[in-house]
């Protein structure tokens, strides 16, 4: 088990290195960043000064190496455009993003797990059909569109919730629902399928035949078994909520990482883009690692390997 996890950990580190390298290369493939950062009518001398100031006059491999060395120490560089440390910019925005992701994730779990189990137990009924269809529809509609329609309904017409912004609890409702809808549509279907599979599995039949009470079978055995694929999927969903909330954050003016990044792209603020990419990749890798750990905890079969 230890070797399994340490191997995974090493893999995760390698992937991060790969991501940082790819980001760096892409950032430098797109031409001279100084051309884009300096004002439109800056003189050659102004541009050269900036190049030296930013350390862009050094050889590429030196730039990459120093980026990595600093990144390991938690220094993600300095945003020239905003005159601020990238690590601080990210740290300032991270709480908002995590709040939203957590709210969206919990909401998605709160909807999908009970709903998935209920319709699995009532398979073939009209409810099963309705919920499944609804979930498919939810999966099909663009998330941002649902967000906009929610705004029209709740904020513009009913005026019960704020259109957008950041502040009290009321502000998080619409963006969290927007984020949660698609995840919960996917997860509901997954919970249903995985529950159905487990219910027909041998060990559940055995449990039944041993005369265990229905409820015990259901919650102790079936639930635990059914959660294994759900945990993986939920992990992916969470990682996506954190790194993929760009559109939701834009629609709802949520001051998180996503908006930081989108603004940085239009400002050609490379250090910030690089930092955000690395941060979300790290988050993705971390969550996947945690999922692996959880696996070992929940699934007895993994331990045997």
């Amino acid at each position: 088990m230890f070797s399994f996890l340490s191997k995974r950990f090493l893999q995760a580190l390698l992937v991060l290195l790969g991501v940082s390298f790819a980001t760096f290369i892409v950032g430098h493939l797109t031409g001279d960043p100084v051309e884009l950062m300096a004002r439109e009518n800056a003189t050659e001398q102004d541009k050269q000064d900036l190049r030296v100031y930013l350390g862009l006059d050094r050889p590429l491999e030196q730039q990459y190496f120093s980026f990595i060395v600093k990144a390991v120490q938690g220094d993600l560089g300095f945003s020239f455009v905003q005159q601020a440390k990238v690590s601080q910019l990210i740290a300032e925005r991270l709480p908002a993003t995590l709040q939203l992701a957590a709210a969206g994730f919990l909401l998605a779990l709160a909807i999908s797990i009970p709903l998935g189990i209920i319709i699995a137990l009532n398979r073939g009924t009209i409810w099963d059909f309705l919920v499944t269809t609804l979930a498919m529809a939810g999966q099909a509609a663009p998330g941002f569109w649902i967000g906009l329609m929610l705004v029209v309904l709740f904020a513009v017409h009913l005026k019960v919730l704020p259109v957008s912004g950041y502040g009290g609890a009321a502000y998080i409702v619409l963006p969290a629902i927007t984020l949660a809808l698609q995840s919960s549509a996917r997860l509901t279907r997954l919970v249903r399928a995985s529950m159905l599979e487990v219910l027909s599995a041998d060990y559940i039949r055995t449990a039944h035949s041993k005369g265990l009470r229905e409820r015990v079978v259901l919650f102790v055995h079936a639930f635990r078994g059914a959660m294994i694929p759900v945990v993986t999927m939920a992990g992916l969903e969470l990682a996506e909520l954190v790194s993929g909330a760009f559109i939701t954050e834009t629609i709802f003016a949520w001051p998180g990482i996503g908006r930081l990044a989108v603004t940085a792209v239009s400002q050609r603020d490379f250090p910030v883009i690089q930092g955000v990419v690395l941060m979300s990749a790290a988050f993705f890798v971390l969550i996947n690692f945690l999922v692996d750990v959880l696996y070992v905890v929940i699934d007895p079969r993994v331990k045997l390997k």
């Binding site: 709160a110 909807i111 009970p114 189990i117 209920i118 019960v160 919730l161 609890a169 009321a170």
Partner: peptide
């Protein structure tokens, strides 16, 4: 479980109005 979820929603809505 469903009842629980409805309660949650009511709570959330109440919270929203409270803030306003």
């Amino acid at each position: 479980i469903k009842g629980n979820w409805t309660r949650r929603l009511v709570l959330l809505a109440g919270l929203a109005m409270g803030v306003t």
